[in-house]
């Protein structure tokens, strides 16, 4: 191939390189092998390079190395599978392999990151201890302390879902009422203006006094934090409904109840979901604070407890659980939205 040919081929290769959805890239095997190699390397570094002599010997190093080997093995398997079976175009297997291949750059970066982390902590002991721990310390927590972590995860989820559900339902109802009724707006709007901008955590001292249990106080705080944005956005959604929608329904014989439930609420839905998203973010913040200060279980409590014992491995492990919890709930919310608002064009994908 001449130099000119290569130059001519470059823009095309750059432009059409991402294999998302249709067709597998020709260098699939190479891509997967590169990633697999790096995961094998990460495992080798973990298992074979002895831990720094001036620090403690970390437990679960062998298990962690095995885990890395399994990851590398799965990549090799995927590569072989793709090469050997040649999945039918647009089949489910093909699209699974295509999306895995699209995340190869990430898989490579992760392998490098884990290796670097391993070297900096366990192998060379370059980072101040006990604040930084190697990845196998997290694995150790998951393997040894999982019952407690699972308990805390369930407690956090229960508290969050209860508070968020109460806040969202009240928020939507209040928002629709303010948007619909002048009288309700007259009384509720000033209260909302005064209370709304106040961070829910400011109520913490009062809430823990006023409620019989710290759990119910936390439900109140989370409901407040998530309810305010839901209220405001629902209200603005209802207030912004095209008045011609009401005219149409009225001439077709709609009752006021129909106008609210079948016209105002669905028309306001895009706004409501923005409010639900903002409220969810606010509820995470309040959840952690409430669990750190009052509730005696949950991931926030676990974080606090781990810090008290200087068990930083436990803390990172709990942080990761928290991140997965929050991200998972946001993903779930977006899935629900995608389904309910499929009629909208140009939606943001989460």
């Amino acid at each position: 191939m001449s130099v000119n040919d290569t130059a001519a081929a470059l823009p095309a290769a750059n432009g059409g390189a991402l294999p998302i959805g249709g067709g597998l890239p020709s260098n699939l095997l190479l891509r997967f092998s590169a990633a697999a190699l790096l995961w094998f390397a990460a495992s080798g570094v973990t298992a074979l390079w002895p831990d720094a002599a001036d620090a403690q010997e970390w437990e679960r190093t062998g298990e962690f190395a095995s885990l890395l080997v399994v990851a590398a093995g799965l990549l090799v398997l995927a590569a072989l599978l793709a090469a050997a079976i040649r999945p039918a175009p647009r089949s489910r297997l093909e699209s699974a392999i295509a999306s895995l291949s699209a995340s190869v750059p990430w898989l490579i970066a992760l392998a490098l990151g884990v290796t670097g982390w391993e070297i900096l902590t366990a192998k060379l002991n370059l980072l101040p201890r006990p604040f930084f721990v190697p990845p196998q310390a997290l694995l150790e927590v998951y393997l040894d302390d999982w019952p407690r972590l699972l308990d805390c995860f369930a407690a956090s989820l229960r508290l969050l879902v209860t508070g968020y559900a109460v806040g969202s339902v009240l928020g939507v109802v209040t928002g629709v009422a303010i948007g619909w009724s002048r009288a309700v707006g007259y009384w509720v709007h000033p209260v909302l203006r005064l209370i709304g901008p106040l961070p829910a955590t400011a109520w913490l001292p009062i809430a823990f006094f006023a409620f019989p249990t710290s759990w119910s106080a936390s439900v109140f705080l989370i409901a407040l934090a998530s309810g305010v944005p839901v209220t405001v956005l629902t209200w603005s959604g209802v207030a912004g409904v095209n008045s011609a929608y009401y005219d149409i329904a009225r001439t077709l014989g709609a009752s006021p109840r129909f106008l609210v439930l079948k016209v105002a609420v669905p028309a306001a839905m895009p706004h409501v979901f923005v409010g639900l998203f903002m409220g969810l973010g606010a509820s995470f913040a309040v959840l952690v604070v409430a669990e750190m200060l009052g509730v005696k279980s949950g991931v926030g409590w676990y974080l606090q407890w781990a810090q008290g014992w200087a068990a930083y491995g436990n803390m990172y492990a709990a942080l990761l659980v928290m991140a997965l919890l929050c991200s998972g709930l946001v993903t779930l919310l977006f899935r629900v939205r995608d389904r309910l608002l499929a009629w909208q064009k140009g939606m943001l994908k989460w």
């Binding site: 011609a244 929608y245 005219d247 149409i248 001439t251 077709l252």
Partner: peptide, 13 residues
């Protein structure tokens, strides 16, 4: 029944 200049169909239906 009225038919307006804009169809004003409900976009969610």
């Amino acid at each position: 029944v009225v038919v307006f200049q804009d169809p004003t169909l409900y976009p969610w239906r």
